[in-house]
Amino acid sequence: MTQRVEIVRKILDANERIAAANRALLDENKVFGVNMMSAPGAGKTSVIMETLRRLPHGVRAGVIEGDTAPVTIDADKISALGTPAVQINTSGSCHLDAVMVELGLQKLDLKLLNLAVIENVGNLICPASFDLGTHANIVIASIPEGDDKPYKYPNIYRGLDVLIINKIDLLPYIDFRMDYFTRGIQILNPDIKIFTVSCKSGEGFEGWMSWLMSKIPAKDQLKDL
């Protein structure tokens, strides 16, 4: 004889609980957290580095780098800018989850920071399903990926706060209908903020930076050492 047991639980419940704890930890320390997702090579590391260079004096960032392989290439680039960077090796997993981010946050001195940037694994499909506990979910699209992606993969762009369209310096060379692309994004995301940028020329970064700065909570600044 078998017996029926009702469960009705979301399968990723455990992840969501830990994500909520991560968010509470960031809030407690007045740190704004962002989760940067994109296909491989769309420009996550480039956008993060350009953002770090443009941060006003007194705004301190820490970066968590997710990589499927134990390579520290991206983390080394960030460290070279003088920003604390933590490398998380996902040992082959195609996305970061809240537990990995919890470990990363433990290695950052959150008391000293205003901004925590997480570079997710280069994969456009599944990182979006895993809440990390950040305040903003951001996808970086790039011109060479083509303008039909939102129509083919609608689920990827749901639940986003910001879309950064990178590599606009390549627009003269590639057929990319910006209106068509952004309309596809807005279908399930009418309130999304869209910024078009180029890491190569620096074009468009002002808008993104002022949005980001408007989100960073006020915090008593510790004196520069």
């Binding site: 004889m1 078998t2 017996q3 029926r4 047991v5 009702e6 469960i7 009705v8 639980r9 979301k10 399968i11 990723l12 399903s129 939102p150 129509y151 083919k152 609608p154 749901r158 309309r183 596809g184 807005q186 279908i187 399930l188 009418p190």
Partner: peptide, 30 residues
Amino acid sequence: ELLPCPACGSIALEIISGEELQIDHIEIMK
């Protein structure tokens, strides 16, 4: 493929269902 509203062409859409990922019940043996 994601398409605007077939009736009026609007892109102001909301999801009614399709995001579920859950375990509903199990059968156990004692």
